[in-house]
Design a protein around this nucleic acid. Structure first.
Ligand SMILES: [Mn+2]
Ligand SMILES: [Mn+2]
Ligand SMILES: [Zn+2]
Ligand SMILES: [Zn+2]
Lengths: 159, 159
DNA sequence: ATCATAGTTTGGAATGGTTCTAAATAGCAC
DNA sequence: GTGCTATTTAGAACCATTCCAAACTATGAT
């Protein structure tokens, strides 16, 4: 997708380097691999799961570094941290406004895109005096076969 | 159930006894006091805060019991557990469909009532195949003076 | 009343995700 | 290269919560 003559279109890794630089931070192998891992399999992994995936590329990485880098990516606004109840924090590189659907059976988390019109209506329930900087919407329930199929077909079947 | 002339109106403590009985559980002093504490000051206290408030009435209560009773109340559907990020779980006896507004400055949590029409529109963003049993909406931001006034005036000034 | 049984409370230990710490390492400016 | 700072690392510490096993309590059947 999106090649050549691109004006200032951001290749994923450049976006990372750029955002880090903007915050006065350095681009490091750990940060790059961790961000790549999040982009490659967008299943809202936990820090432990990221740790496991990163290890295969950087066998000596530490769990502390995974936490550090994830926090860095979140503070650079390249990744969102997502929490369900008191479970481990999950990480999501989808920056578009979206809600999360937590499938209680499978434990899987799905992104639900939110139309701007709906976001407006949601914000409109706030009485005067409430100034919200963000809103988070979490569905809980079960996703049936047709939604699994959607998810499966929209993502390469993984080697 | 529903005794004679009563329109079936439930005194708080009866509601508790009833719900517990429905679940085959006993009404105990600890459960009653903890539920009362939640009803009396509806500021979404943590288990520790509930513990402190209950101690003045039941000086020998244990923190484990507070956790046990809160879990019992949640499983009886008399209380909702509310989580913000990875902070300690907070407890809310407001059973009407409502969102939460987390004031980042003061740390206070406010209930935002949700009209059924909005809830419908929110559920409508779910694609086919997603069957949600619940939805949770959390705002984050700051509440200005006018909302503090509203909250203050709607609740007795506390002895 | 007494007893048997199951439910509940309690203090303390264990858990588990996350954060902290201090030392080692790596990148950048001069 | 030298010095300076950012980053990574292993392991300890943290802390909300859960687990455990022993006391205690309510219930209801004899
Ligand atoms: Mn789950
Ligand atoms: Mn806060
Ligand atoms: Zn997401
Ligand atoms: Zn509430």
């Amino acid at each position: 997708m999106s090649t050549a003559t691109l004006p200032s279109a951001t290749l994923p890794s450049d976006a990372l380097a750029q955002r880090l630089a903007d915050s006065g931070l350095r681009s490091t192998p750990q940060r790059e691999v961790i961000y790549d891992v999040l982009l490659k399999k967008r299943d809202h992994p936990t820090a432990d799961e990221v740790f496991a995936r990163v290890k295969s590329e950087l066998p000596t990485v530490s769990l502390a570094t995974v936490y550090n880098c994830l926090e860095t990516l979140v503070s650079c606004q390249l990744v969102r941290a997502v929490n369900f109840e008191r479970g481990p924090t999950r990480y999501c590189p989808n920056l578009s406004p979206h809600a999360h659907f937590h499938d209680e059976q499978s434990g899987q988390t799905h992104d639900i895109e939110l139309p701007p019109a709906l976001l407006k209506k949601v914000h409109a329930v706030l009485p005067r005096g409430y100034d919200a900087t963000s809103v988070e919407i979490i569905f809980r329930g079960k996703a049936t076969r047709s939604s699994e199929q959607r998810a499966a077909s929209s993502q390469p079947t993984r080697s």
